[in-house]
């Protein structure tokens, strides 16, 4: 039995996992109290999404398919909030529903309610159901519903009735100002999918030839959405928390937009697309959930990288010791 004390590096190779967990908790929670606006270079596909959102004609209705629940709130809530802030600031009407999860309507309603409260506190006009947006709730069968939307959206939503606050009665959704001009899904200003699951694949399969699709998804789903973007079947993507922060950064500084506070410097250039530009969002919050979580995310990923490096250093030291003995 050897009496030699293990070196610091050797001790680091056999860390108790409870210590690792404690470090992770500290690394991810402490930065939540530090508000920073880190400079970033948004991804090209997120720039494409922001450009699309900022150039939707104001008389067009956005179709919003929200297929996420609270398990992915860290990413999707930020997507949804950024999206709603952009639509509401641009006074664009939207129809929202889910084909992914029965819990999804409860979750997106809470986000809409919170953004409305935020606008009310800021002295901005609230979005009203029926006049500004229509909530069609949940469709359990994604394949069948998306197919029906592709063929005839008026028949697909024909059975859905929405409360008209002006009369207090339930009326067919297509009588609302939001959907009255919509004849086909091709009339949508943009078909947005906020998702944590493969419903993006279903939507591309059924709808990509009929309308313009764009996606906001979790980091896990992101890689499987990129082939659709590369093929031109979806027009823009925001992936994970980086996507949320990229969106918020562009909401603050615009895209290919000269910043008058910085001597006309363009904070977010779009290489190869210099002829296209999008304004920043002019009312309400810009930096929000993404800005709040992004520093924590940095620390968590750095900790992961350090853990991988430490594990491998330990393995090499162990092999070296074996060879020496």
């Amino acid at each position: 039995m050897s009496d030699t004390k293990p070196t610091f590096l050797e001790r680091m190779q056999n860390l108790d996992r409870r210590i690792l967990y404690a470090i992770l908790v500290v690394f991810t929670t402490v930065p939540l109290f530090i508000k920073t606006d880190l400079p970033v270079e948004p991804d090209a596909y997120t720039k494409a999404l922001y450009y699309r959102l900022m150039t939707i004609p104001q008389d067009k209705t956005v179709f919003l398919q929200s297929d996420w629940t609270v398990s992915t709130r860290g990413e999707n809530a930020g997507h949804m909030e950024a999206l709603l802030r952009i639509l509401m600031s641009r006074k664009i009407k939207f129809v929202v529903y889910s084909v992914g999860d029965a819990q999804a309507p409860g979750v997106y309603r809470e986000v809409i309610r919170n953004i409305n409260l935020e606008r009310k506190e800021a002295g901005l006009t609230e979005y009203k159901t029926w006049d500004d947006y229509v909530d069609l709730a949940y469709f359990p069968n994604a394949e069948g519903t998306l197919n029906a939307i592709a063929f005839d959206v008026r028949k697909a939503f024909a059975s859905r009735r929405v409360k008209d606050p002006n009369t207090g009665s339930d009326r067919p959704a297509f009588e609302s100002p939001v959907l009255s001009k919509v004849q086909t899904v091709g009339d949508a200003g943009l078909y947005m999918i906020v998702t944590a699951s493969s419903t993006v694949d279903r939507a591309v399969e059924r709808l990509n030839e009929r309308t313009n699709l764009a996606v906001m998804c979790t980091g896990v789903i992101g890689p499987s959405a990129l082939p659709w973007y590369q093929a031109g079947q979806i027009k823009g993507v925001a992936i994970g928390l980086k996507g949320v922060y990229d969106m918020e950064y562009m909401m603050k500084y615009g895209l290919n937009h000269p910043d008058p506070n910085k001597n006309g410097r363009i904070e977010v250039p779009w290489a190869g697309k210099e002829d296209k530009s999008a304004e920043p969002v002019t009312e309400g919050k810009t930096f929000a959930r993404g800005s709040l979580y992004y520093l924590s995310f940095h620390f968590a990923i750095l900790l992961l990288i350090i853990a991988v490096i430490l594990g491998n250093v330990g393995m090499f030291l162990g092999r070296k010791a074996e060879r020496a003995s």
Binding site: T69, T72, G74, V107, A300, L304, G311, N312
Partner: peptide, 26 residues
Amino acid sequence: LQQMDSAMFSMIAFFILSAAYRAFRI
């Protein structure tokens, strides 16, 4: 329900960190 759902999902971070430390070897 919502908080427990989020908490369950966030536990994955702990498993990923532990796996990165112990299993991701060259």
